[in-house]
Simulated scan of single mutants.
Amino acid sequence: MAPDDVLVECRDAALTFGRGAHAVVAVHGATLTVRAGQRLAIVGPSGSGKSSLLHLLAGLERPTGGTVTWPASAGPRDIGLVFQSESLIPALDVVENTALPLVLSGVPEERARRAALDALALVAADDLAERLPEEISGGQAGRVAAARVLAQAPRLILADEPTGRLDRTTAGRVLDALLTAAERTGAALVVTTHDPAVAARLGARRAMRDGRLLVAEEAS
């Protein structure tokens, strides 16, 4: 692919928390390129550095060594994020939660609501539109999170262990929703996971161990 297809690129990117004797290196010199339309699983056990690497890709953390750049996009503004932890606002119903990023970016409320309802329908969650977060299951919340990303139409979707706390059937539905969101928007999709079944549904795979991103051939 051409250089202008590169959405985010890490070159020897490192992330260290703390200093001196108490310093903890979360990511050791990772080099990774994510291109338009790519499907990538970053696999590894808990504590291997997967989430820290995703935070670097998203611009949520600044590298303490090396570089992270977004050559063919507007940077983190073109990125949709899906986290494992609960991210829905309890006081807002599902459609309001889905529309919120658009409203915060300046989209008129009615237009944002229509986009949110369309996105919810695409992941088969439009029947949840008027429910509060406490009234839906974990799997349903995962589909809503995917719809929120879909409504934003990002160029890159980063999902951090989105199925980690779900049973196999529910996890499959959430991953279906993320893949639908990526397909509909034309976005690249990067998913961190420790589940081989999830990784198998993505096109490419890289492994992390002890904060080090391994070459693709070592990811199995």
Rank of each mutant, 00 (worst) to 15 (best):
E9F: 05
E9Y: 11
C10T: 15
C10L: 15
A14K: 01
A14F: 01
R19I: 01
G20E: 00
A21K: 14
H22M: 08
V25T: 15
V25I: 11
G29C: 08
G29W: 00
V34W: 11
R35L: 02
R35F: 02
Q38R: 11
A41Y: 10
I42C: 08
G44T: 11
S48Y: 10
G49N: 01
S51D: 13
S51H: 14
L54C: 05
L54G: 03
G59S: 02
G59A: 05
V68F: 11
W70M: 08
P71H: 04
P71G: 08
A74L: 13
A74S: 07
P76R: 15
R77D: 06
I79M: 05
G80W: 06
S85I: 06
E86I: 00
E86K: 11
S87H: 08
S87P: 12
L88R: 07
L88F: 09
A91Y: 06
D93K: 11
D93S: 03
V95K: 12
V95Q: 13
A99G: 04
L102S: 00
V103W: 03
V103Y: 00
V107I: 12
A112Y: 08
R114N: 02
L117S: 02
A119R: 15
A119I: 03
A119H: 13
L122V: 07
L122M: 15
A124Y: 09
D126H: 03
